[in-house]
Design a binder for these strands. Sequence first.
RNA 1: GUGCCCGUAGCUCAAUUGGAUAGAGUAUUAGACUCCGGAUCUAAAGGUUGUGGGUUCAAAUCCCACCGGGCACGCCA
Length: 552
Amino acid sequence: MYTTLLEVLKDAISHLMRANYNLSEEDPEAFRIEIPPERKFGHFSTNVAMVYAKVLKKAPRLIAQTLVGGLEALPYIASVSIEGAGFINFFLKPSYFQERTLKILQGEYASSLSLMPAESIQFEFVSANPTGPLTIGHGRQAVLGDILSSVFQKAGVAVTREYYFNDAGKQMKLLSRSLWVRYNRLCGSEYEIPEGGYHGEYLVDIAERFHNESGAVYKDQWDDSIEAIFMERAKNEIFQMIKGTLEAIQIHFDVYYTEASLFRDGIVEEVLEQLKGREALYEKDQALWFKTSDFEEDQDKVLIRSDGMATYFLTDIAYHYEKYRRGFSKVYDIWGADHHGHITRMNAAMKALGIPEGFFNVILHQMVSLRQNEEIVKMSKRAANFVTLDELVRNVGKDAVRYFFAMVDKDSQLEFNIDLALSRSMDNPVYYVQYALARIHSLFENARNKGFTYTENQNLDRLDSEDETFMIRDLLLFPEVIRDICTTQQIHRLTNYLYGLAYAFHNYYTGHVFVDPDRPELSNARLNLASAFRKTIEEGLKLLGVTAPERM
RNA sequence: GUGCCCGUAGCUCAAUUGGAUAGAGUAUUAGACUCCGGAUCUAAAGGUUGUGGGUUCAAAUCCCACCGGGCACGCCA
């Protein structure tokens, strides 16, 4: 396991506390190593004295006082002070930061960091049915799922990205009929798009192509086989559209899983058998019900409708049963907040099947709303008043789209200003971060032009000013951010972090000359610092799926 | 009515998940190297963190009650 800097510091302080006080194993170690709000407080601080004040029945500042000597004796500590209510603030020696910079330069962050157990985990996301183009709501989910997957991989987890879709079912029947209506209109026959059907323009396009190819042979004709033909046609064309959009935003799935295969492979049947064996089923009103209420605080749900068709709930249970059989130690489903009601009953089903707690996990994200002409527009695929993800990506580019979706906390609703997004190049800090890389690249170009020979890993001892040690401290937090995201699923921490690195760099850049031929050693040291920034920012952008450009 | 999420500067969002003077961008104003990319930097102004209680050394953060917004409560997915 990779040990982060904060863990090293925490262990050291924990050790000191045990040496100085008679602490039992049960004593909580809820104290933290923190990043102080201001430089004058040090590189790091800890609240350990305040946290233990109650247990030890001593004043925080007194406890802090007993730790100072031990801390100062640590080889990498430069100075220690006590401030405020009992904060212990400390500076690390420049030599320590220099050693760590060397590791970054040698590619420490480029490989897997082994921050989490090396399990096999699945992320399921997007999973939109092929009934229409992806919306910008799907965009948020796609970006969230893809970045989480990448971050977990970086942390040493074996990740499978999976897309599940429904290619049978009631909605597909409605889709088929909707296409058929559009097609008949081209043949000169008027029919109504069915209740709950699809009104989007994209079906008109598909109908046109189909009509051009096959003429009017299906005019006024409708039976099961024709329904299947139109369903297949709509599904295939729409799914190609969806895959094209995913490609444009650079999201690649390892597995596309279809609902139909759950029936074909007998998994639905097997699940029904199992549930029946556990007496979790009953019949009522010609339908088959699952006793949700036996397992969770929720109402019982229908698994097989009175018309004999399986509900989405049943196939979803079968699907997750199948995931379990595939041997993942854990799966994460990423759902929009509108699906949260589904969680409890799924948990109930997992219990009924004897699948261990903790296997099935849901990551919810809040909705995306659109603002256009000062108005909030509600999105609905069926009503066809949505802005497509494809449109957005074409207009502003995948980097801006990915960064923009990643930077907002998944638990916050996201208000999306269409006019702003589509007109200018969206007000997006991604350029700020990318610009730092472009600047670093041109620094090295400039050095070459001046005939300066850059030597990587040399002269790091010249990185000893306060500006530089604080910058390196920030670089050392990269693994911390990765792990935090694994535990909180808050990918916006990564954009915050990278923005902070870019800020630190831009700031330093303005106040310091990097390439000064009269001071070759100092220049070389600073170029090494720039290189360490580049490597760290590049790794971060890679996780975000955002381009790390040399020029802009 | 019940459950989940949210409410922070004019606007869009942060806040190291209980820490020190609540910060960025944007919009407004005033500035910056004859020099490595001005897509940058520095500063001013902008706040009773929806309201009222509570918990404690410490609350935007946790608890309770209200107010406001979103979502869900189907034999839809």
